[in-house]
Computed example of a mutant assay.
Amino acid sequence: MGLDRDTKHRIVTTFQRRVANPLSLKLPGQVLVETTGRTSGLPRRTPVGGRRIGDSFWFVSEFGPKSQYVRNIQADPKVRVRIRGRWYEGTARLLPDDDARARLRTLPRMNSSAVRAFGTDLLTIRVDLD
Rank of each mutant, 00 (worst) to 15 (best):
R105E: 12
V19S: 11
G54V: 09
A20S: 07
D55K: 12
H9C: 00
L123R: 11
Y88P: 00
P96A: 09
R44L: 08
D4Y: 09
P47S: 02
A92L: 01
T106F: 05
G119S: 08
R109T: 06
Q74L: 14
R38A: 06
F118D: 01
L3F: 12
W58I: 07
G49K: 10
P77S: 13
D97W: 13
Q68T: 08
S61Y: 10
L3A: 13
T39P: 00
V48S: 05
R93L: 09
A114F: 07
H9D: 01
T36P: 00
R45L: 13
K8N: 14
S67V: 01
R86T: 15
S56P: 00
K8F: 06
K78R: 14
R93G: 03
R38K: 10
A114D: 08
E62F: 02
W58T: 02
T39N: 12
K8P: 00
D98N: 09
L95I: 10
R5W: 04
R10Y: 01
S40I: 06
A114M: 06
F15P: 00
T91L: 10
L42Y: 02
Y88V: 08
T14E: 03
Q68E: 11
D128H: 14
V79R: 02
T120E: 13
M110S: 12
M110I: 11
I11K: 05
L23C: 07
V60K: 08
I125M: 01
